[in-house]
Design a protein around this nucleic acid. Structure first.
Ligand code: FES
Ligand code: FES
Lengths: 146, 146
DNA sequence: TTAATTAAGGATATTTTTGTCCTCTTTTTT
DNA sequence: AAAAAAGAGGACAAAAATATCCTTAATTAA
């Protein structure tokens, strides 16, 4: 469904949200290990999320690492998709028509549309914090332990 | 959601289903034009659908082209996804965990699962013929006219 | 102030996806 | 039989996605 880059972005952000506060900032090595992603590639993705979109924050130097502000934690998961420029995975025509519209719908449209809307709603409604809590509560996992 | 190749495969197959019978077999040029896809790349995809998976049939020579048998028309759309080796787009974990399971679910799983199941059901239930009929009835389009 | 630690950023490499082109084979028409 | 019209298939090309490495900058601790 999503690219590897976006999958890593989602997993990394959720993990950081769960692990970070004023005192505790997971570093790249820890993050990549836990979410099981290639380290340097993950670094690039975190740069993307840090730079333009202000979803993830970072500090350099000893005891540095990545963290999410309380404000960032309240962002919808959808904002990660937008930061990765993959939000149109959810919005575009499932058969690849240039426009997904009511006036010239593809033959899947009528039945696909309600599912699509539920999907979008799910990503718009769930916050990063919501997903992080799921893990803290032990209801779900994001990778290999922790 | 799906790769370009799979989008072309879906559109091409639906178009062929709609246009073809014993006497009438659309050719590559016509198909690519109507569904708005790169001609030679579409040829490769149709080869894939013809060769291994027997979804599309073809005949060479003058008045040759592509067609679907009545049997093929009754196949679920899902079979096109399988032929293109992209069925796991619908089945895998939305966050990219190696397993989508109940025992170690990702934090999206609980809410994503029902949508995923509806998506799979949609692709498993709808036949190629169903979608072709939608176009014949004028209820939807697959590309630029015809 | 020096050394150590950690993210940022640039350059490069690899792999996959997407796409083109040319020749070969099959089939029909003349 | 020859010519023409298609798809089949292989080789190649271009672009995008994925991934690695190395140097630089910032920050902290000794
Ligand atoms: S037009 Fe294809 S999904 Fe809306
Ligand atoms: S475990 Fe992630 S969707 Fe099922």
């Amino acid at each position: 469904m999503f690219s590897k880059a976006t999958e890593y972005a989602l997993r990394a952000t959720i993990y950081i949200a769960r692990r970070s506060d004023e005192k505790n900032k997971p570093g790249l090595a820890e993050i990549a290990k836990v979410i099981d992603s290639p380290r340097s590639f993950t670094a690039k993705i975190l740069q993307q999320l840090t730079k333009n979109n202000k979803i993830v924050s970072s500090v350099r130097g000893p005891n540095g690492g990545f963290f999410l502000t309380d404000k960032a934690k309240k962002l919808p998961v959808y904002s990660i998709l937008k930061a990765m420029a993959e939000d149109e995975v959810l919005t575009k025509c499932v058969l690849g028509l240039k426009q997904c519209s009511e006036t010239k719908p593809c033959p899947m449209h009528a039945q696909y549309k309600p599912l699509k809307q539920q999907l979008i709603k799910l990503f718009e409604t769930k916050t990063i914090q919501d997903l992080a809590s799921e893990i803290t509560n032990g209801d779900s996992v994001i990778g290999n332990g922790k």
